[in-house]
Amino acid sequence: MRIYFSANESQNLRSRYQKIIDILVMSGNSVMSNLELDKSARFSDTDVEKFRAAGQTLLEQMDSLVIDATIKSPENGYLVALALTHKKPTLFLHEKGTDVDSNLLSLQKDKNTAAFLVLQDYQEEKLKKYLLEFLQFAEKKGGKEIPKIKFTLRITPKIERYLHWKTHNTKKSKADFLRERIDKMIEEDEEFRRYNK
């Protein structure tokens, strides 16, 4: 999944923000952020221009949004509003003991927005748990079960011959065959399952 992480710049919370990004990246996601932190990426200039020409915002290119609103900013509300408009699963984190805008709380009761919004107060030691729970939630909401991510895979002639031989005279495409094998690997990977607990 492509996740946008947003937070208000703060030296005190910088290591915590980095931890959030680390967890998201370690779970197999690519992360973009308004902060300059390790492991978070940015769109290339070419991509940015392409989206601008089409009148699209970069947020539309993301699968979900994670905000740490421990330090309040008017920008947080705007990002949540825009993400929900585009039906992007959104995790709104704030440290235990800090307030949340009452209008955000009402969004959790609204039938149009509640399905995509998770408001979560947290203590640092439980961050990983909340983030992993959100990833599972986002994968379902974002319809990740439907293959929609396209990438180019270069293979050797030997692999190509094998895939052809394996799928020849079956109703299965080479891509389906590979997807099924990878799904099976995920199911059997205990280490990955343990990490996601």
């Binding site: 008017p74 509300g77 509003a81 825009l82 805008d101 009402s106 969004l107 149009n112 927005t113």
Partner: peptide
């Protein structure tokens, strides 16, 4: 009101 997102801004 069908755009409750507006109220948080």
């Amino acid at each position: 009101q069908r755009m409750p997102e507006l109220d948080i801004i």
